[in-house]
Each structure stands twice: as C-alpha cells, then as structure tokens.
Amino acid sequence: MIKPKAIKKSIVLGTLTLLCLILSSCAAVSDTKVLYFAHSLPTSHPVHKGILDMQSILNEKSGGKLQIKVFPDGQLGSEREVLELLQIGSIAITKVSASALSNFAPEYQITVIPYLFRDDAHLWRNLEGEVGEQLLASGSEYLLRGLCFYDAGARSFYTKEKPINSPDDLTGLKVRVQNDQMSVSMANTLGASATPMAFSELYTALQQNVVDGAENNIPSFVTSNHFEVCKYYTFDEHTMIPDVVIIGTKFWDKLSDQEKNWLRAASKESVVAQKRYWKETIAEQMEMLKKNGVQFTYPNKEAFQEKSRPIMENMKKDPKMKAIIDKINAN
C-alpha cells in the first residue's frame, strides 16, 4: 500500500510536471526556444541577480532565439524536487548547492570537505580550471550537466545562546545541517549533534529550541531572517561550497551546437557579475546585522581544521576522490 506521504509527494510532483509541460508547450508555439529555470532563492539574493544577468546575456547573444524564464523562490518545488524534474525533462535549468548534488553525483562530495579550499583564490583556481570542468561533467551520467559555478561564500556556524570560539563550544549543541552525509559528518566530527532538516523548517525549529543553531553563509542567514533568533555568528568558515547552475541532459541534448555555445558563454560570463553581487551583498548585510545586535566571532581556525581532518583522510580512501583532492591541494 502506498503511504499518504508518498501519495502527497506524487501529487505534488505530478502537478509540477504538468505545469511545466504546459509551459513548455506554450513556448514551442513560436520559433523562440524558452528554457525554464527554477530555483529556491528569493529575488533579493545575489545568486538570483547573477541568474538575471545570465538571462540577459543569453538573450543578447542569441538575438532572442534562446531565452530563459526564471521561477525563483521555490515556485516549482524544493531543490531536490526540481532536480528530479530536471532528470525527467520537465524543467530545463536550476541552481543548487553542490552539496545537494552530491546525493546525485558523488564527485560533488569533494566540495563539502571541511577546509579543502584554502581561500577564495584557491577555490576559484580550481572551480574555473580542470577540476571544475571535471565536476561539471560528472553529473551527466545522472542526467544533470553542470554549466558553471556561482559564489556561495563560506559557511559558518550561528547559534542562539553563545558564540563558538573553538570546537569544544559545539559539544552538546544540536546544529541543523543540510541533508547529505558529508555535512552530517562535518558537524558530528567537530563535536556538534548534527540535525538534518529542510531549510524551510529551520526558523521555527530555532524558535522552538528543536535545534541550538545552524551553519550557512551570510546572505542565507539574512534572507531567512535567522538573525532574529540567533545573535551569534562565528566565522570559522568550515566549508566553501559553491552553487552550481545545471541543465537537464534531456534539454541539453536537444540543443544545437550554436545554442549550446550561447548557453555556455552566457553562464560563464554571468559568473563575473554574480561574484560582484555577492561581495556587495555581504558588505551591506554585515552592517545591517551589526545594527540588529548580531555579534561576530573570528576564532582561530587551526583547531577546527585539525579536528575535521579525519573527514578528508577518510575520503582519500577512495582512489577516485583522492586523485581529485590531490589535484586541488597541488593547485
């Protein structure tokens, strides 16, 4: 017997699929091809602004022959639901965290290893080089082809009752993490009690003391209004997990070579603007958070790095993962 929850999920996915198929059929009336781009971020987010640049650049390069229509703010489902819709060919493009992709394409687990990237320069040397191209291509066998990486900054801990000055301060704290094994391992290894849950449920969970804190970047901390509940933000910067713009191969394979070139070029060029939007947003939001009573802590990262080191060593037991890690460390 199918459980009620499963029935509900099937109905939701079926409805979304039907909606997208209707939209796609409408777009096919003219000679213009329209790719539907769904994501879960609000329109104020710097990643959404980068997507709008991608939309504009693609329209210009193609002379309006290939266009993007953007559905932000989770209009067509959660990250996982939209990824599944890409796989069945109901939506063309989405933006997700690389950690979410690790549940579909294992190579993306690399991006969730704590302190793998030394700084921004090291991160982008790899993401915009051979390693990045390898990762973007790795999802193709799972029907998810990467187009580019967007800046999602560094993820750090934020808490309700006290600042985190060392890993010892995490002991006994229930910390919300993303629902992937690497994120769970990261929090547990550092001493917290990892609590996976949907991001949409986190504000209430913080209010009701279901969890004591969470970890994320500054823009997500702000746009979610978690700063209203958590007044301590610790810049331990344990991971630098990029966002990934991906297209379903069911759409990609139907594009002509010229259309693929337009889309690739537009996505890559939009990264430059998106990085700028990210930095500008961080500067503005830091000032706003200070005015709202958020206290920032800048701990010595060495203790966090040392305690989390077993995660990288364990990952290296897989020869394929070791080869990627070694390539990143050598870059």
Rank of each mutant, 00 (worst) to 15 (best):
D212K: 09
S140E: 15
S185H: 04
V210N: 08
S220I: 10
Q178E: 12
S183Y: 00
G146D: 09
P196L: 09
I241Y: 02
E161H: 12
Y232C: 03
A192D: 05
R176S: 14
E130I: 04
E161T: 13
T239E: 08
A205N: 08
E130M: 05
A187R: 01
P163W: 10
L144F: 01
M186L: 13
N225E: 10
V177S: 06
T171H: 14
L136E: 04
D180K: 04
G191V: 08
Y203T: 09
A154D: 05
K160S: 09
F149W: 09
A187W: 01
Y150N: 08
M240W: 04
D180I: 01
N165F: 06
M240E: 02
N165G: 15
M182S: 11
H226L: 07
L190E: 02
A187K: 01
D169A: 13
E161W: 02
Q134F: 11
Q134N: 09
N217T: 11
S185Q: 11
C148W: 07
Y150W: 12
P167N: 12
E215M: 14
L143W: 00
F235E: 03
F199L: 10
N216H: 09
L144W: 03
V229D: 04
L135I: 03
R176T: 02
I241R: 07
S200P: 00
E215Q: 12
Y233R: 00
N217L: 05
D236T: 06
L190A: 13
C230S: 11
F199A: 14
N165A: 12
S140P: 00
Y150L: 14
E228K: 14
A154R: 13
K174W: 03
P163A: 12
L170K: 13
S140I: 05
F221C: 06
E237N: 12
Y232H: 14
A198Q: 04
Y232N: 10
T204M: 11
F235S: 00
E215H: 10
D243K: 09
A194N: 04
T234W: 01
V229P: 05
K160M: 12
F199P: 01
R155K: 11
S185P: 00
S200Y: 07
A137D: 12
L206E: 07
L136C: 07
A194T: 04
H226Y: 11
S220P: 00
A187H: 00
V177R: 01
L190M: 11
E128N: 12
Q207D: 09
V210Q: 13
Y233G: 01
